[in-house]
Simulated scan of single mutants.
Amino acid sequence: MAPRSPNLESPSTAGTARSGPVALLHALPVPAALIRTDGHILECNDALLRLAHLGTPPARLDDVLPEDLVQRLRSSTPHDAVRHRHAVNGSPVCWVAWSSKPWPLDPGIRLVTGIDVTREHALEDYIAANQWFETAAALSGGLAHDFNNALAGILGLSEIISLRLPEDSPLHGFTSRIAASVDRAKTIVRRFSQFSRKSTGVADAQPTAMLVDELVPLLKAFMPSAVVVTSAVDPETPWCRAERHEFEHILLNCCTFFRARLRQEGGTLHLAALPALERAGAVVRLTASGQGLLGAPIERAFELDLARSETAYDSGAAVHTAARIARAGQASLQLLRDDPRTLSFVLRLPPAL
Rank of each mutant, 00 (worst) to 15 (best):
S100Y: 02
L353Q: 15
Q206W: 01
L335T: 00
A136S: 14
S309Q: 12
T311K: 12
D38Q: 11
P235D: 00
A128P: 07
S5G: 01
V202S: 13
V319T: 15
P107L: 05
L353A: 14
T16P: 00
P3N: 07
A87H: 06
T311G: 06
V233I: 06
D339R: 11
L269V: 13
S231Q: 13
G295A: 01
A129G: 15
F133M: 14
C240Y: 04
L34T: 04
R337P: 06
T287M: 08
N253I: 01
P6N: 02
G281Y: 14
A318P: 08
A47S: 09
K186E: 13
P224N: 07
V216G: 06
R308S: 13
A87Q: 07
T187S: 14
L252C: 02
V82R: 03
A97W: 00
F222L: 10
R285D: 11
F195P: 05
T187G: 13
E246C: 10
P107W: 06
N253V: 02
R184H: 13
H53I: 00
L333K: 01
V93R: 04
R244D: 07
L349M: 10
D63N: 07
N130A: 12
R308M: 14
P238V: 06
W103P: 03
F192I: 06
A260K: 10
D339K: 12
V112Y: 02
A260H: 14
T13N: 05
L61I: 08
M210I: 09
